[in-house]
């Protein structure tokens, strides 16, 4: 009885090993199953999903206008202080003093991509950018000013 068990054990073992070999052998002879992407070469075709969280950006229209009123809600909602808002007061056309944004500073190096700033922005001034190649040689380059120099508030945004 033991002898039968011994021999059948050997054959069962060999069959189980053979099954594993068939799996790896199948992939060896099927180069079509290769799933890796050739990254720097496929830069042109590589497109991230629309929802992809690359970095926080502030879109500007063709007249160099953005929607940020400088209210500071994003700064308040950010859990780790990645956003700093430096505001200034400008005098609008009808002569009133108004709070406006001077610099919207975004620290990409501290950002955890939690999306709270974008979700909480009342004027939808911030959106996700699709850029994902963030590597730089100097950390200070990760501190970005989101509003472009000389940009103004879009008409009709309060």
């Amino acid at each position: 009885m033991n002898v039968i068990k011994y021999i059948s054990g050997i054959f069962k073992g060999i069959i189980s090993l053979w099954k594993g070999l068939m799996v790896t052998g199948y992939y060896f002879v099927h180069p079509g199953e290769i799933v890796t992407q050739q990254y720097p070469e496929n830069r042109k075709e590589l497109k991230m999903f629309d929802a992809f969280k690359g970095e926080v950006t502030m879109p500007h229209n063709e007249n160099n206008e953005h929607k940020c009123t400088g209210c500071g809600i994003c700064e308040m909602n950010c859990p780790n202080g990645s956003i700093e808002i430096i505001s200034k007061s400008v005098i609008s056309e009808d002569g009133k003093k108004k709070r406006a944004i001077d610099q919207h500073i975004y620290h990409l190096d501290m950002c955890t991509f939690c999306e709270l700033c974008i979700k909480s922005c009342p004027s939808k001034a911030l959106v996700w950018g699709q850029e994902f190649e963030h590597a730089v040689y100097d950390r200070s380059k990760l501190t970005k000013i989101l509003n472009k120099p000389g940009s103004t508030l879009m008409k009709g945004v309060e």
């Binding site: 999903f49 629309d50 929802a51 992809f52 991509f113 999306e115 979700k119």
Partner: peptide, 27 residues
């Protein structure tokens, strides 16, 4: 992870749920 990325925007650390619902609708 591709399914996640398409709907949530990130692959590993999603932060997709908020108290009361979701950050955004699914794709």
């Amino acid at each position: 992870l591709d399914i996640f990325e398409e709907s949530c925007g990130s692959r590993l650390l999603h932060s997709y749920y908020t108290p009361g619902g979701l950050m955004k609708d699914i794709n």
